[in-house]
Structures are given as structure tokens and as C-alpha cells.
Write a protein that binds this DNA or RNA. Structure first.
Lengths: 154, 154
DNA sequence: CTGATTGCAAAGAATTTGCACTGCT
DNA sequence: AGCAGTGCAAATTCTTTGCAATCAG
């Protein structure tokens, strides 16, 4: 129920920026901050409704849009493991990579200084001003890779 | 009109694998091989119809699926610059990164040995067996980054 | 010949929009 | 009080599916 320690208090942060905080927005923001899994719009709606029962789908999407524009959340596709939904997570200090297992569906997170180096290289060599990056990797997680071998898949 | 030199002849490659080559599939494959831009299902349909006028939307999607499963094409989101379409490209020897400019919409490609190193690191350290990766970067391309500064955006 | 592939039409999933009403600051 | 934000319902966009007819090998 309490926000994880390493995460900032988004509600205050946004209010300080002059963003209007409605109960609906508060509900969405709290859910997205407190739930560790990656949420799609549907589950976000479901969870936000526990706090603010009359909240509508449209408000969820509008709030997500707002948070994306403010750059406080990242949008993920997670390799479209389950349809074409998008998933959302609060931006972390260090960006991380998502490893999606096609076999068991688990999502692992991975971060690496090589990724940071790669991003600097991109800015430097392509003269590209990076606002957001998304690195998704699909394949088999360790456990499933072993099963693949046993079963002769690969 | 002629396929670019560095690309293999997919039709023969697939037939060798026992894949049935229909005129519809041939049309889709030829288009995807010959056109340099990233195509979404809609433009793929339009272009494939020039070769095989009665081809249907469903066949496009089914063929894309087939090619994805055979791992001869990659699916891209290109940062959802224009809606939620997906884009397709024939897999290249070396995977590359797509840089999407939010301002002018241009897509640049970038490849780097750091990316290859990062992928090895992921397999090694996470024990993850990588099948496909997608690295997309959004921001401002060189030209637009300059305009951003001039206009005080940033 | 025969099962894989296709076109068609309809359904489905995710997201967006127009508009009158509500409520934050 | 004023205007940004909301709920509702309908619309849009992209993709998938069921089924009878067709065709590649």
C-alpha cells in the first residue's frame, strides 16, 4: 500500500509543476507508482476503479498521455507477448532493458553501463538528441532455454 | 525495381524450406524486399495490389505472420510516431537501431558494435537466449535539435 | 488430389473523440 | 468563476477469424 521507497512522490511533483490534480489522476498515479508489474490500460482502469469507482477508460488514456508528455512514465510494448497492448512504468533513474520470454511470458529487467555508453555514442555520432529509448529483447529466459534444449527446440 | 544487392532472394530461400509460394506471398515478399522504407500493413497491401490486384488485407497479415515466425522479417513500432501501426523490414545481417525524430518524423538507422556487445552481455549475464531485439530511440534528429535550440524548446 | 491458402465479410481489441456536465484552483 | 478535466457513447484504427472456394505441389 505504501509507495516503494526509491520512488518519488509524483502527485506533489506534478502539482508543483502546475498540473491540476483531480481524484482521478491521483488514483491513476498512485496505482502506477505502487504496483510493481507493468500495467496496461485495462488493468490500470481496473485498479484505479478500486480507488475512484466512476473513473472512465477515456480518463485513463488521457492521464497516460499526460504522464508520457511530462516524461514521468515510459511506454512499453513488451514484444507484444499478449496482443497489442501497451504497458506503462514510472521512469526510473537509469533506464533498463526488458527481456520478454516468448515461452513463459515472464519479463525480466536488465540494466547495463554498456547501454548507457551506447546511448552516448548515438547522441555523439548521429547528432541525435535522445528523449526516450526502448530496448526490448525477446527470446527464452534461462529456465525456458534449458527446456528448449531438452525438448530439442532451440 | 531490382532488389538491392545485399539482400538475398527470399522467394527461393523459402521455397527451399518447403514453404508454399503463392502469387500473393510472392507479391508481398517482393514488395518488402524491394522497397527501402519501412512499410506498415496498409502500404504493403497497397503496393502488393499493384502486382496481384485481388490480394486481401487478411493475406497480408497472414503472410507477415509467416515471415515473422520464419524470422525473415522484423517488426518495428518506430516509437508510434504515426498511430499504432507496425512496420516491417527484412532482417539484416547486423541488427540496427532506429532513431525516430518526433519533430520531423524521419527515421534514421544506426548500428554499433556496442549494441552487439550489449547483446552478448545480456545472454551471458542473464542467461537469456535472445531471438530478436528491438531498440528504438525517440528524440530530435540533428537538424531538428538545432531548430529546437533556436526556438528555445529543448 | 488434397491439405494449405485465399478472399470475403464480419468480429474483435485497443484507443480516440465530441460534447455536455462537473469540479479544481 | 472560469476553464481544464471528466464520463459517456459512439467512432476509428488496426488486426484477426470463420468459412466456403481455390490452388500449389
Amino acid at each position: 500500500m505504501s509507495p516503494s521507497l526509491e520512488r518519488r512522490d509524483l502527485v506533489h511533483e506534478l502539482r508543483a509543476k502546475g498540473i491540476r490534480i483531480t481524484p482521478q489522476r491521483r488514483a491513476v498515479i498512485e496505482v502506477i507508482q505502487e504496483v510493481r508489474e507493468h500495467l496496461d490500460a485495462g488493468s490500470l482502469l481496473e485498479l484505479a476503479r478500486k480507488r475512484h469507482p466512476r473513473i472512465d477508460r477515456a480518463t485513463i488514456y488521457r492521464t497516460i498521455d499526460l504522464l508520457k508528455k511530462l516524461r514521468v512514465v515510459d511506454e512499453l510494448d513488451l514484444m507484444h507477448l499478449e496482443g497489442e497492448k501497451h504497458f506503462y512504468e514510472v521512469k526510473t533513474v537509469r533506464e533498463h532493458i526488458h527481456l520478454a520470454c516468448f515461452r513463459c511470458g515472464r519479463i525480466e529487467e536488465f540494466s547495463s553501463s554498456l547501454f548507457e555508453q551506447l546511448k552516448s555514442e548515438i547522441s555523439r555520432e548521429a547528432g541525435f538528441h535522445i528523449r526516450v529509448t526502448r530496448l526490448e529483447v525477446g527470446g527464452s529466459c534461462q529456465a525456458c532455454a534449458e527446456k528448449d534444449v531438452q525438448e530439442g527446440n532451440r
